[in-house]
Design a protein around this nucleic acid. Structure first.
Length: 888
RNA sequence: GCUCGCUUAGCUCAGUUGGUUAGAGCGCUUCGUUGACAUCGAAGAGGUCACUAGUUCGAAUCUAGUAGCGAGUACCA
């Protein structure tokens, strides 16, 4: 066996699992020794088909694969379905850029030609992301892998669109939308990122038509839109302006007359109390325009430049950029003496998620999906716990969003993506929505709508289309829907999770998943977001190359707590690599003398071991297995790792194996049995290392994968007697070790001890563990009663097995090096025990406490007091004797 | 503005229905190779659980408020 584990076996086992088809639910299930009827299904959130694995993916895969393997080992028929997303905008941008680098304008290729380029680009990159997903050790079903643009998934998307249209939920309308002037496409509300920006409010004077020497002052952050003003609104009750309502003002520059109207949306306290109304370029104004039946002149081209044919002086501004036009408007007002003042102002400004430029409210024809009824149903599923969101904080966020939802704009002015199945007739202008083109399309009367669907439309159908929908009789759909868990990052709670809930429930009237687990954001060790520009990126591919996949998986799991960002660092990775190494070496030790053995008797749980430490480690195994399953069942990923860490490192290695060194032959089967169970428990986290170690266990054949072994379950009643007795054993060993360390006796010095005051139970435990006690505490000998007369001694009180009692370990002074040191140690301990006894006594003196606390609590406190007093008395008398000795 | 989190040892964090002396790892101090592991073992020091008030026999834990940090979200022109 190698001296340490790095990553030398990763690829070997990945190949092994694939060749044995262990990711295929049916295959793995058939191999399980105790298969259950239940299923566990988890759909991988599909990474972008041309993406590169980043730390967020790594976390997602590490958690999902851990949960999947655990469920599989527990005997459930388990589906973990991988796939990729066609990422409409992202891929189109990449291909456009790629073509540009070759000097090709993508538009010159035409739609068909461009799509051909997209497909070839994807076919080049798809294997890369799949390889990276595989390299972390994901045990998913590659035979069921899906891409959101696979023909059968496209069919599902088209069917969904047509069906939703039939139900009146999809409609086409001219509305004000979020427009990206750079991307030249509409964006959904979610794709707009609001950023705080320092800007100004310009107070502009609009001259009254009746009396051009008088003005109405409007306040605006976007002076350029005054070119599209159709009215000025004031609050109907605003005394300052009441008289002006119904009058007209004359717009400077374009020299047009517009009315002053009254609308309650105006806040008289803000700005000047008068608001210019530009229905085509502001969401509020649009609504005001609707209410007052105002025209909505558009002043921008799709790339946010001034349109031609504006009235007045603005006629010559055609083609001017919106921000240049802003300055020009202000300058013009200044020249006309109509600029009242400029005020500093911080406002939140919408920018496009993808390109970063300021988004323009823009009037255009788009396809929308009605949200209200779908959202109501989704909210109900969550509020009634048919879907449980973990961590719970996201529950409220989800509900809030569902309550304030607007219709979803699903069309995009792009080429790469699912083209909308709507056909417009050139002759009649009629539009038909249909899964197949109208028959007469051959004669070119019909033309398909050029827009594609928002990528998230197909993602929203992922739980359905991957399992065979719209064929409602599909095997997978019947078997695995609803899926068990959706695991993903909270950044796509609304983008994706909410849409899946709404769309899936609309079509099959059943939730798509029973639980949603949202993992935290991965950050660097200082809590900073990882970014290339900051240079703090920890690349998962590099980590796997340096440390191996298991270390990365284990570390990500170990740092994953709810409600806090995950801070990853090389230090942590080193730490968890050491943990894997610890298990590696424990196995090396356990198998030291079994090389070549094919004796499989260790696989059976030892029935009734004689040694206390053997009984104890089995009892602890049960506890650990129970804690572990509970932790994973509640998505407490860190707690699961902590449970294993403590059990394996402290209990198994530091205590159990050390004890077993004294009872090697008799403990051998227990050592191997527990080790085997440890490998099973660690397997979901560290599949490669554990699979390698498993195959080193005596008698395990090459084809036997750890992946389909039965996961340990905590037995109903752990051996509480063994737990309590071993605690007593540990206390004795601890006391002697402390004595040696504190009073400067070499740990290796085998001192003699006597034990007195032991009750029958305590005595029995000590007798039965005599050999291990001597070996663990490094004793010369252990006798009962007092040290021989004439030799002074120090005494260590230890809590006895019997409640409220303590025993005394007697160590003759001759065994000690420095009596003064020992006196100090005793004084310190006495002081602390006395303090405990005092506070305990006052607690029990409190009448309120004794009267009102439950009796079992009082009993517990009384036993404690007895024990403290007992120990204090013993310490005090020992100290007196020793002090006399020092003086004498 | 609103909503929701977070604040525990020098550092990173656990602490799941209120009840042992508030835990772990790292770091620090002292010591140590009995058959795996120095990526190791033993012992030790270190905390008025952000602050204030309340509920309770009893609060890190429950309630209210304050401060600092963070996230989500809104139509303030």
């Amino acid at each position: 066996m190698d001296k340490a584990y790095e990553k030398q076996h990763d690829e070997k086992w990945q190949k092994f699992w694939d060749e044995k088809r262990l990711g295929v639910p049916e295959v793995a299930h058939a191999l399980h020794p105790q298969p259950l009827k239940e299923t566990f299904a988890l759909l991988m959130p599909p990474p972008n088909v041309t993406g590169v694995l980043h730390q967020g993916h790594a976390l997602m895969l590490a958690l999902e694969d851990t949960l999947t393997r655990w469920n599989r080992m527990c005997g459930l028929e388990t589906l973990y379905l991988p796939g990729t997303d066609h990422a409409s905008i992202a891929v189109q941008m990449q291909v456009v850029k790629h073509l540009a680098s070759k000097g090709i304008d993508h538009r010159s290729l035409g739609r068909e030609g461009f799509l051909k380029e997209c497909w070839s680009w994807i076919n080049d990159y798809r294997p890369r992301i799949y390889g990276q997903v595989r390299s972390i050790g994901t045990n998913c079903d590659w035979e069921r892998v899906k891409f959101t643009m696979d023909p059968e998934l496209n069919k599902g998307v088209t069917h969904a669109f047509v069906e939703l249209h039939k139900r009146g939920l999809i409609y086409r309308a001219e509305k004000l939308v979020n427009w990206s002037p750079v991307g030249q496409t509409v964006l959904s509300d979610l794709e707009v990122i609001f950023k705080e920006q320092k800007g100004h409010i310009w107070h502009l004077r609009y001259p009254l038509v009746d009396d051009p020497k008088k003005f109405l002052i409007v306040a605006t952050t976007r002076p350029e839109t005054m070119l599209g003003d159709v009215a000025v609104a004031v609050h109907p009750d605003d005394e300052r302006y009441k008289a002006l309502i119904g009058k007209k003002i004359r717009l400077p520059i374009i020299d047009r007359e517009i009315p002053v109207i009254a609308d309650t949306f105006v806040d008289p306290a803000f700005g000047s109390g008068a608001v210019k109304i530009t229905p085509a370029h502001d969401f509020n104004d649009f609504e005001v325009g609707e209410r007052h039946s105002l025209a909505r002149p558009n002043i921008f081209t799709p790339d946010a430049k001034i349109v031609p044919n504006l009235a007045g002086k603005a006629a010559g501004w055609a083609g001017l950029d919106r921000f240049v036009a802003r300055e020009k408007v202000v300058e013009e007002f200044k020249n006309l003496g109509l600029l009242e003042r400029i005020e500093d102002h911080v406002n939140r400004i919408g920018t496009s998620e993808r390109w970063g430029e300021v988004v323009e409210p823009y009037l255009s024809h788009q396809w929308f999906l009605k949200m209200d009824t779908m959202a109501k149903r989704a909210a109900e599923a969550v509020s009634t716990k048919r879907i449980e969101i973990v961590p719970h904080e996201f529950h409220n966020q989800f509900m809030r969003w569902m309550e304030n939802i607007h219709d979803w704009c699903i069309s995009r002015q792009l080429w790469w993506g699912q083209q909308i199945p709507a056909y417009h007739c050139r002759k009649t202008g009629k539009t038909v929505v249909s899964e197949t083109p109208p028959a007469s399309s051959q004669d070119h009367d019909w033309v398909q709508d050029p827009d594609v669907l928002d990528t998230w439309f197909s993602s929203g159908l992922w739980p359905l289309t991957t399992l065979g929908w719209p064929n409602v009789k599909a095997e997978d759909l019947k078997k695995f829907y609803p899926t068990s868990v959706l695991e993903t990052g909270f950044d796509i709670l609304f983008f994706w999770v909410a849409r899946m809930v709404m769309m899936c429930m609309e079509f099959v009237d059943e939730v798509p998943f029973k639980k949603v687990y949202m993992h935290p954001m991965v950050r660097d060790e200082h809590g900073q977001k990882m970014s290339k520009s900051k240079g703090n990126v920890i690349d998962p591919l590099e980590i796997m190359n340096d440390f191996g996949a298991d270390t990365l998986r284990l570390t990500l799991n170990a740092l994953c707590v709810q409600g806090r960002d995950l801070k990853l660092s090389n230090e942590r990775l080193d730490f968890y690599r050491a943990f894997i190494n610890k298990i590696w070496n424990a196995t090396r030790f356990a198998l030291m003398k079994s090389e070549g053995s094919i004796d499989r008797s260790w696989m059976k749980r030892p029935a009734k071991p004689t040694h206390l430490h053997d009984r104890w480690i089995l009892a602890r195994l049960d506890e650990a297995a129970r804690d572990l399953s509970k932790a994973w069942g509640e998505f407490r990923m860190q707690e699961a790792v902590d449970t294993l860490y403590h059990f394996i490192w402290s209990d198994f290695c530091d205590w159990y194996l050390e004890c077993a060194k004294a009872t090697r032959e008799e403990s051998d089967n227990t050592v191997k049995f527990v080790l085997g169970e440890i490998l099973k428990m660690m397997h979901p986290l560290c599949p490669h290392a554990t699979e390698e170690l498993w195959h080193g266990m005596p008698g395990i054949k090459f084809e036997e994968s750890l992946l389909v072994q039965k996961f340990p379950e905590g037995l109903g009643f752990p051996d509480s007697e063994a737990l309590a007795e071993f605690k007593f054993f540990q206390d004795i060993v601890g006391q002697i070790r402390t004595l040696k360390a504190e009073s400067k006796v070499a740990p290796s010095k085998a001192i003699r001890i006597w034990i007195k005051d032991a009750g029958p139970l305590s005595k029995k435990v000590i007798e039965s563990t005599r050999d291990t006690l001597i070996s663990m505490a490094r004793l010369g000998d252990l006798s009962w009663g007092d040290a021989p007369a004439g030799s002074a001694s120090t005494r260590l009180p230890v809590t006895a097995v019997e409640a409220g009692k303590s025993i005394e370990i007697v160590v003759p002074v001759s065994e000690l090096k420095d009596l003064a040191e020992e006196c100090d140690r005793l004084r310190k301990e006495l002081a602390s025990v006395e303090k405990l006894a005092t506070s305990q006594a006052s607690k029990l003196d409190n009448k309120n406490f004794v009267d009102r606390a439950p009796p079992e609590v009082i009993d517990k406190e009384k036993i404690k007091l007895e024990e403290y007093r007992d120990k204090a008395a013993k310490l005090s008398s020992t100290l007196k004797e020793l002090e006399a000795q020092v003086k004498g």
